[in-house]
Amino acid sequence: MKKLFITAAIVLAAAFGANAQRYCVIDTKYILDNIPEYKDSQKKLDAVADQWQKEIDAKFQEVDKMYKSYQAEQVMLTEELKHKREDEIVAKEKDAKDLQKKRFGYEGDLFKKREELVKPIQDRVYNAIQKLAASRMYDFVLDKSGGVTLIFFDPKLDKSDDILKSLGVKK
């Protein structure tokens, strides 16, 4: 009986505690899409990525051209020349893959460029969210654009526009 009473007390305390929690909903994608600096940074990032991808594609096309040329001439080459050409093709392909990894790999040039251009804006948004949460005493903030699945929420709980106002963005 004593365990039942303690369990009931814990359940009731948790229920009252859950009712006392304050929360709001935001949409970081909406917020970022309404910040002109973010759009500009994203365009710059896309342009750089396109340029690097073209550079990598050109290297792979060169490898492909070398391989086709090798296949066409393979019959007439000596074993020594075959091995030399194969080594050249493999080395060229390795260079292209290394460049691809350097540009687009984990913590590659694109990652660093994104950190340089986009992260400061994301940090400002995060700080504005923290300020809003602290000033209005929210216990937690849900982001409807992220991995959290929200089936329904009351639109008056969406504070995305408040974040934009605190960042000085007019929409």
Results as ranks from 00 to 15, higher is better:
120 P>I: 03
132 L>D: 12
101 K>M: 15
77 L>F: 12
158 D>G: 03
127 N>V: 13
127 N>A: 14
122 Q>P: 07
154 D>L: 04
166 S>K: 14
106 Y>D: 14
96 A>E: 13
100 Q>P: 11
81 L>E: 05
170 K>N: 03
70 Y>L: 00
129 I>M: 11
142 L>A: 09
91 A>L: 13
93 E>Y: 08
135 S>N: 11
117 L>V: 03
113 K>Q: 12
69 S>E: 09
74 Q>K: 15
75 V>T: 12
92 K>C: 05
85 R>P: 01
158 D>E: 06
150 L>N: 15
132 L>S: 13
88 E>R: 14
140 F>C: 13
84 K>S: 03
82 K>R: 14
171 K>L: 10
101 K>G: 09
83 H>L: 13
112 K>D: 06
134 A>G: 10
110 L>V: 07
69 S>P: 08
157 L>W: 00
88 E>G: 10
104 F>R: 04
165 K>M: 05
82 K>A: 05
129 I>R: 09
84 K>P: 02
109 D>M: 12
119 K>E: 08
147 G>E: 07
114 R>E: 01
141 V>A: 03
164 L>T: 03
126 Y>P: 10
139 D>K: 14
96 A>D: 02
119 K>W: 05
168 G>T: 10
70 Y>T: 01
146 G>P: 02
135 S>Y: 00
126 Y>D: 12
122 Q>E: 14
136 R>I: 04
153 F>P: 06
132 L>M: 15
163 I>D: 08
125 V>C: 07
169 V>R: 06
129 I>W: 10
144 K>F: 01
166 S>T: 15
116 E>G: 10
89 I>H: 02
133 A>L: 02
121 I>D: 09
79 E>L: 08
104 F>D: 04
135 S>T: 02
162 D>P: 05
166 S>W: 13
116 E>K: 12
80 E>G: 08
69 S>K: 11
159 K>G: 04
111 F>D: 10
109 D>A: 13
171 K>S: 06
131 K>M: 00
137 M>C: 07
163 I>E: 05
74 Q>T: 02
93 E>H: 10
87 D>T: 10
167 L>P: 13
132 L>R: 07
